[in-house]
C-alpha cells in the first residue's frame, strides 16, 4: 500500500505541508479564503530536532491501535487506509490517548481528525507530498 514516508535530511522546515493539508481538508476552493487569519489544524505536523526537521502524519499502521481502541467504531481500516467517520465519532479522544505517534487530534467539529491520504477530499492524493518543494515526504509503496 502507498503511504507517506519521510526523508528527514531533505526537510527544510518550511511548514508548507501543514498549510497544504489544512487547505486540502478545508472544503474551500480558494487557499487565501481557507487559511487567512485562521489558526490551522493540519493532520501533518513538522517537528524539529536541533538542525533537523521532519513531518509527522498518520503511519496507517498495519495493526492500528487507534482502530482497535475506538469506543464508537468510527475508525476503520479499508484497503490498508485508516479513516474516520465524523458522524460516528463522539470525540472521547481515546484514539488520541493510544496513538503512539500523536497523529489523531481534536477538531473543531467535536470529532477527531486524522490523515486520510487525501483520498476522502477532492485532492485525491496527499496534498502535503504534492506541494513539498524538496521531496522530503514521498508517497510510495514500501510494502
Amino acid at each position: 500500500m502507498k503511504r507517506v514516508y519521510v526523508n528527514e535530511k531533505w526537510c527544510l522546515g518550511c511548514h508548507l505541508c501543514e498549510y497544504n493539508c489544512a487547505f486540502a481538508n478545508s472544503g474551500e476552493s480558494d487557499m487565501v479564503r481557507a487559511l487567512r487569519k485562521k489558526k490551522i489544524v493540519p493532520n501533518i505536523r513538522v517537528e524539529e530536532d536541533g538542525e533537523i526537521n521532519f513531518a509527522v502524519s498518520c503511519r496507517h499502521c498495519s495493526e492500528p491501535i487507534c482502530v482497535k481502541s475506538c469506543i464508537s467504531g468510527a475508525l476503520t481500516k479499508t484497503d490498508g487506509m485508516i479513516s474516520i467517520d465524523h458522524d460516528k465519532c463522539v470525540g472521547c479522544l481515546t484514539c488520541v490517548l493510544v496513538c503512539p505517534y500523536g497523529c489523531v487530534r481534536e477538531s473543531e467539529n467535536g470529532a477527531v481528525q486524522k490523515c486520510e491520504l487525501c483520498l476522502n477530499n477532492t485532492v485525491g492524493e496527499p496534498a502535503c507530498v504534492k506541494g513539498c518543494p524538496n521531496r522530503a515526504i514521498i508517497f510510495e509503496d514500501r510494502g
Partner: peptide, 20 residues
C-alpha cells in the same frame, strides 16, 4: 511536550520511513 524528536533518528527512520 510529547513529540517524536526526543526518540532520536533511528526510531524516526524506522517509524517514519518504514511499514509499521
Amino acid at each position: 511536550s510529547p513529540s517524536l524528536a526526543p526518540f532520536g533518528k533511528a526510531f524516526r527512520d524506522e517509524k517514519l520511513g518504514g511499514v509499521i
